[in-house]
């Protein structure tokens, strides 16, 4: 009961982070600022959603897989945004 309530709260907080990041995506002007807001806001938002699924389910198979997904997005999203920003810098330099 209390774990369901905690998981729902964390999931709503993560979805709110995603919505705020989307507003930042359409408000900023330069592309590097957009990369910055995506890697911060969406990394933390999807991470919080997956942690909320884990908090609602506990140590079952579903919970462990959501925890693995949270770990993977925490490691892979900065790499992705770094590669895109490096390609953008290389395009602008030419």
């Amino acid at each position: 009961m209390i774990s369901d309530l905690l998981g729902t709260g964390i999931i709503i907080l993560g979805a709110l982070f995603c919505l705020i990041g989307t507003v930042g995506l359409i408000r900023f002007n330069r592309i590097y600022e957009r990369f910055d807001v995506v890697v911060k806001s969406f990394g933390f938002g999807i991470f919080l959603i997956m942690i909320g699924v884990f908090a609602g389910e506990g140590f079952t198979g579903m919970g462990m897989r959501s925890l693995l997904c949270a770990l993977f997005i925490w490691l892979s999203l900065p790499v992705v945004i770094y590669a895109l920003a490096r390609a953008t810098h290389r395009i602008e330099k030419e």
Partner: peptide, 22 residues
């Protein structure tokens, strides 16, 4: 810019599937 928006859309889809699974 368009590809960045597409990445964001796909990440939101991943989060939505996570919520829908629970």
């Amino acid at each position: 810019d368009r590809f960045l928006a597409l990445v964001v859309l796909t990440l939101m889809c991943a989060g939505f599937i996570g919520v829908y699974a629970i």
